[in-house]
Design a protein around this nucleic acid. Structure first.
Lengths: 133, 133
DNA sequence: CTTAAATTAGGAACTATTCCTAATTTTGTT
DNA sequence: AACAAAATTAGGAATAGTTCCTAATTTAAG
């Protein structure tokens, strides 16, 4: 746990506190307020280590940089296809869905529980309605 | 439909033919075999237009460049978190899941049917088992 | 045909991320 | 505590993927 460097500790703590799915850059700016000497590459490197160690989640975005998420209670994401905004929702992936995937893809891939569904947020939707007139 | 430029037609046809979730670069290389004068920026620009027009899907990857997918029959994706390999599966998103998301996030976002579930493919899994010993 | 609008090729610019190197910090051993 | 080995750092250069810019060309409309 705590045989982590000071820098890695700070980075993990920031991500734990933020409930906003921050980008690497946002994390960097926040950590800088605590340790102004930290370098961007240290932040990126440690974020990757934390993902590798499954302490945080990476969320790949349809637009803009990746976002990160502390893994506490299991939750899933709905992501806006246009602007990339992320919404959390809480729901156990149904067994029937898991079974069906297993049936179709057995021997190829095994699931890791985390579910992402695409949508269009109402902000982007109302923008589009204006354009399309 | 066909008040598209010659270049855009070629790009769409290539994506239709390929069942491999190609990257922009892969599409560019294929189109080049037909029209060797086409430029990379034309390929990128038209891919974005086709996504905007909902003729193709963009798949954001956990690793490496985005991939694209012709929208014929509805299908969803399971994506390897480590290497980004994409597997198709066919399944209607259950109504209970849709309803639950609607209940939790109503007024914020509306779904667009396309579902992405993360996993770890067996190739990456067997690699990891070797490391972890 | 002529003019306007859209699209192109080609390359520069940009954004996000990784890689490199020498210096510093941490860990383990005695 | 003193030392060597291993891990990590800061800082910046390099890379990958994508978008943007411009002048030239193509297509569409009157």
């Amino acid at each position: 746990m705590s045989n982590y460097s000071k820098q890695r500790e700070s980075i993990l703590n920031i991500i734990k506190k933020l409930k906003t799915h921050p980008t690497a850059e946002e994390i960097y700016m926040k950590v800088k307020q605590i340790d102004e000497r930290i370098s961007r590459s240290t932040v990126y490197r440690n974020i990757n280590i934390l993902v590798e160690n499954a302490e945080i989640n990476k969320i790949s975005m349809p637009v803009g940089p990746d976002r990160y998420d502390y893994i506490d209670n299991k939750h899933n994401h709905v992501i806006c296809e246009k602007c990339g905004k992320v919404f959390d929702f809480y729901y156990e992936v149904p067994k029937t869905l898991k079974n069906e995937i297993q049936r179709q893809l057995s021997g190829k891939i095994s699931l890791t529980e985390s579910l992402e569904i695409n949508g269009i947020c109402y902000e982007c939707k109302s923008k589009k309605e204006k354009w399309e007139v």
